[in-house]
Amino acid sequence: MNDKPATGFAQDIDAMTLARAQRGDMAAFAQLYQRYARACFQLALRLTGQRQPAEDLVHEAFLKMMDTIGSYRGDAPFGAWFKRLVANTGIDWLRRQRHIAGVDAEEALEHASAMPVDTAGIVDADALLARLPPRARAIVVLHELEGYTHAELAALFGQSESYSKSILARALKRLQGLAATATSTSQVAL
């Protein structure tokens, strides 16, 4: 039996707080923020790769949640529903920034591969992810960490499933290369 308390978006919320939030009660919204803001910020940081845009994304996602919580019917746990809302807000944000529409992901990965490998600062998986171009990073985060399928990603990005698969495979190969270099560099330094 797993006694580990739920964290992040896996945390549950009591029905009373939820009902109050659905009536627009600000104190209930504050409770939802207390519970999910950190997970929301973490996902936003992974998607945007930068702190300030991540804050903006959290801001926008909470405003959207406050506007649309009335439509939440409880078919899925609230955390899962909210996580999807945050991820979709992240995709919209990336689109608005033209990080996705303006630069082709394959081109960006090609360009990144051609650059000299600088592994300084790669101290954890998130730092590793931050080295990927925005669209490739979003695909890795959503598929690998948030459980989106290739079909869903294809719909979100307006591309085919094979495109999403190809970007994911190339992004992971790039991450593998970066991780290997980072590991060998740190061993030399020691």
Partner: peptide, 23 residues
């Protein structure tokens, strides 16, 4: 195989800003 990502602290004024925008 890598260390767990460092949890970035949330900016303390984020909720007041969200609440103000909502209002």
């Amino acid at each position: 195989g890598m260390p767990a990502a460092r949890l970035e602290p949330l900016p303390p004024d984020l909720w007041p800003r969200i609440a103000a925008s909502h209002a």
